[in-house]
Nucleic acid binder design. Structure first.
Lengths: 337, 337
DNA sequence: CTGAAAGCGCTAACAA
DNA sequence: TTGTTAGCGCTTTCAG
């Protein structure tokens, strides 16, 4: 273990005081050019790097932002992470990552751990946040922004897509393509406000267009591939073969397509399937998935940008940012007009 | 901003010295039970959390491990990240993440940044590491382990799958299934030792089984979906329609399947396709991809376990860990016997 | 413009 | 078993 070079070493070698060195590395106070060059030279020669721990200890700034995610390997999450990472780097923040596997206890634990690490801000991505999370984070008095389906229900900083009309729009799209019987597989069994809105978007489109609203066509599943597969199988087992299926998750949508295939139905020739999110696999799978594009990278980027602003005491234009979605027409939906 | 409670506050309120408080929070020296309880009580009441920055400053331990990855959103990478994260948590280490987009300059920059953050160890995942990386990391005298195709070429700690016979085994498998003309798409244009070995594994299997070794059947592409697609198209454009295609990457393999489909060939009925890695999509795609399973989660887990051991001055059983691979038979390869 | 000195919150000798 | 004290490496008054 070679001893690392400290500010003292630099000061001594440059023949100045440590305060002067501090001043040149931080550009905080005027320093004669001659002295500055001398110090810089020593720094270069010795390869000196200021110890951010010591610095943080006095400035109370760690340049660390905690990011809490359900699971890194989830495509939904990691596309956001790319955005988060990118922006963090831009502003010289480092990311402290914590996986929670959507377990609330683990979420609280991670929060605690991150807090201990003196993070300056938090980006919390969670399937479902509630008052406990919010109160705890508030009690930390650390800037935070949330990415969560339930964020809209609370008075907190959050970023999301403008969910209001998504399901309405996609259902309408499907109807416009000539589908009369449209199944709706919600990838959540919760009944949060968001889910109720999504459901009513679907219902509204159905009713407005004088189609029959059939409870049997509505299913509640999980978000995984298997969940979509099983839900679709369930439908098929009940001899329900809709003309179109709208699944609120891409992987689950692909599960549905596979279930359909396994039962001898062709997508989109026999039945159309639409997804939600536009993760990578939606572009790769065949038939390519028609889906709702969520700007995941941007969501992550905006979220962390918000906390950085907050950290710097800049004001936020809006507490709740909503990014636009759009329907991406690919191959899994066929016009039946 | 409420002032955070420090060890001093606790000491004062408990009527003891700060060293005593330090002793009880670290369990480092015996403390009378009575005093201990008193201190603990104050800690509980005040919600005191030791400042790890201050602690690190003196102990020179940050409980931080830097992880450098090409891209979080790459499925190959994020499955390893899950393993890394899990083990880190187990040993109370926090992960500092840096995305490099496989850019060498960025890799060096990230290394620098992480170094500055006083990380205690490094897990470096990189497509291609070279002497510059290694020398730099060595100069930091921080424990590191590498996950990289080129790691085997250097005398460094690394974890990998036992690559030696992979391509031989898969090619042999394909031959055993009755394929005579087998294309080999390498998802790399480099010619590292690993790539040469992979190539010769393929060649060995072909020759040993008295098949014709045809240079035209060997292609060099990138690792992405599109790369596989294009390489396959290239083959097809040259009127080469092999009975089987072995692509050394799952997403690229799926690209190849799609190219085949787009040209009217059915997989596996007309041509078999095998992949490499067994990332999530291999299980989801239809036909399900027959591929070489790499234990990505385990690779990540082992890698970080190694650096933790190193940090604690425990000796490593082996410098280069090789995890077993296995061929996963699914649907994209059909027997032609 | 520069240096001396205090102190960020904590651990670890060293004494007592 | 406990308290005192000297730092860890740095920033930041405060003088000069």
């Amino acid at each position: 273990m070679k001893r690392t070079v400290t500010i003292k070493d630099v000061a001594k070698q440059a023949g100045v005081s440590i305060s002067t060195v501090s001043r040149v590395i931080n550009n905080s106070k005027p320093v004669t050019d001659e002295v500055k060059q001398r110090v810089l030279e020593v720094i270069r020669r010795t390869g000196y790097i200021p110890n951010p721990l010591a610095r943080s200890l006095v400035t109370k700034k760690s340049q660390l932002i905690g990011v809490i995610v359900p699971e890194v390997s989830d495509s939904f999450v990691n596309e956001m992470l790319d955005g988060i990472e990118e922006v963090a780097k831009m502003y010289d923040y480092e990311i402290l990552l914590a996986n929670t596997y959507s377990d609330k206890e683990q979420e609280m634990k991670s929060l605690n751990l991150l807090r201990a690490k003196q993070i300056e801000g938090i980006v919390m991505i969670s399937n479902k946040i509630d008052n406990d999370h919010i109160e705890y984070i508030n009690s930390l008095s650390i800037p935070a922004t949330y990415i969560s389906k339930t964020a809209r229900e609370y008075d907190i900083n959050s970023v999301d897509i403008s969910n209001k009309n998504v399901t309405y729009d996609m259902t309408k799209y499907l109807i416009d393509k000539g589908h009369k019987e449209i199944a709706f597989i919600m990838t959540s069994k919760d009944k949060t406000i968001l889910e109720r809105e999504r459901l009513s978007g679907y219902e509204k489109a159905i009713i407005e267009n004088n189609l029959k609203l059939d409870e049997k066509l509505i299913r509640y599943a999980g978000i995984e591939y298997e969940d979509g597969y099983e839900s679709m199988m369930e439908l098929l087992d009940e001899n329900i073969v809709p003309q179109a299926v709208f699944v609120t998750g891409d992987e689950a949508a692909i599960g549905a397509i596979n279930a359909l295939n396994d039962r001898g139905y062709s997508v989109p020739d026999d039945v159309s399937v639409a997804g939600f999110s536009d993760v990578k696999i939606a572009r790769i799978y065949r038939p390519k998935l028609t889906t709702v594009h969520q700007p995941l990278y941007d969501i992550g980027a905006v979220a962390i940008r918000m906390v950085i602003k907050l950290i710097n005491n800049e004001s936020l234009d809006e507490k709740k940012v909503e990014l636009p979605y759009r329907i991406i027409e690919r191959e899994s939906v066929k016009s039946r007009n």
